Amino acid sequence: MPDYTLEHAHGGRVAGVDEVGRGPLAGPVVAAAVMFPGSVPGVLADRLDDSKKLKPALRARLYDVLLASPDVLIGVGAASVAEIERYNILRASWLAMQRAVGRLPRSPEFILVDGNAAPDFGCPAQCVVGGDGISLSIAAASVVAKVIRDRLMARLARRWPAYGWERNAGYGTAIHRAGLLAQGASPHHRAAFGTVRRILQASVSPSSPPSAEQPSC
């Protein structure tokens, strides 16, 4: 379980940062920054973990506790599908992280980032591989980012129901791939991703005559 060891080691205002949504075939990448200026509320310290390890119901409860606590500072940022296509997914993830930190109510003095690389935040930062299972601040950020992104994809699924986003959050599950084959891409798909391109190419009828724009294969 994550704890507050890294935050205590640095002292001062330490924010944990994590992103969700690098791997999906559709939707934005979302990042969150979380800072505990005082002590971590007990219910959070005892239950926070890597958001992927938490059941959805518990994740939602922890998210509500985080948002309701006046002693928890939260910033959220995102990068759109257009930005993912323009900058690539890594740089778009960094952009979302920078936006999340910029939207914290107070500026951090140090940042803990999940992963092995981080953008320039304008203050010192430390990358922590597997950080959402090590640092409470990063774990909290992972919960916030995942709940927000999952809910966003569920809302988008109401308008684009063929892809099952309310269940797969845009990841390339069988239902999502079948929807792409049957319906083609939506405006929210990451068309530059190789997996999306291959599925769309496979959806082209073999009987269609080849042309310069549609090479036979």
Rank of each mutant, 00 (worst) to 15 (best):
L44H: 01
L54S: 05
S80P: 02
A57L: 12
G11S: 11
A78H: 13
Q214H: 13
E85R: 05
R59H: 04
P119G: 04
G179Q: 01
R106T: 12
K146F: 09
R99L: 07
L62C: 08
R22Y: 12
A182I: 02
V196K: 09
L200M: 11
Y87S: 12
P119S: 05
H176A: 12
A139N: 09
L54H: 07
V143H: 01
A174E: 12
L90H: 13
R103H: 15
D150T: 07
I134L: 14
A140C: 12
H176Q: 15
G42C: 03
L73A: 15
K52M: 11
P2N: 09
T5N: 06
A182W: 01
G164W: 01
T195Y: 01
A57Q: 14
P215N: 01
T5V: 07
L67M: 14
C217S: 14
S80A: 11
L181H: 03
V144S: 04
G172T: 10
P209C: 01
P41Y: 08
L73S: 11
I111S: 03
V128G: 12
A140Y: 07
G122H: 09
L6Y: 06
R197L: 03
E83F: 09
I134E: 09
H189D: 05
C217F: 13
A79P: 00
L44G: 01
I84S: 01
C127D: 10
A118N: 05
A45N: 06
G42E: 15
Y163H: 09
D46V: 04
D120V: 09
Y171L: 15
E213N: 11
R47Y: 07
A212W: 00
S80C: 08
I84R: 02
I89T: 10
G194I: 04
Y87C: 10
V20R: 03
P56A: 15
F110W: 13
V128D: 13
A60W: 00
A96K: 02
R149W: 04
V29M: 07
S216E: 00
P124N: 05
A32Q: 02
P124H: 04
P2K: 10
V204W: 01
F110M: 10
V204D: 00
A57H: 10
V81E: 04
E83N: 08
V204Y: 00
V20D: 03
V20W: 04
I111C: 10
P70V: 10
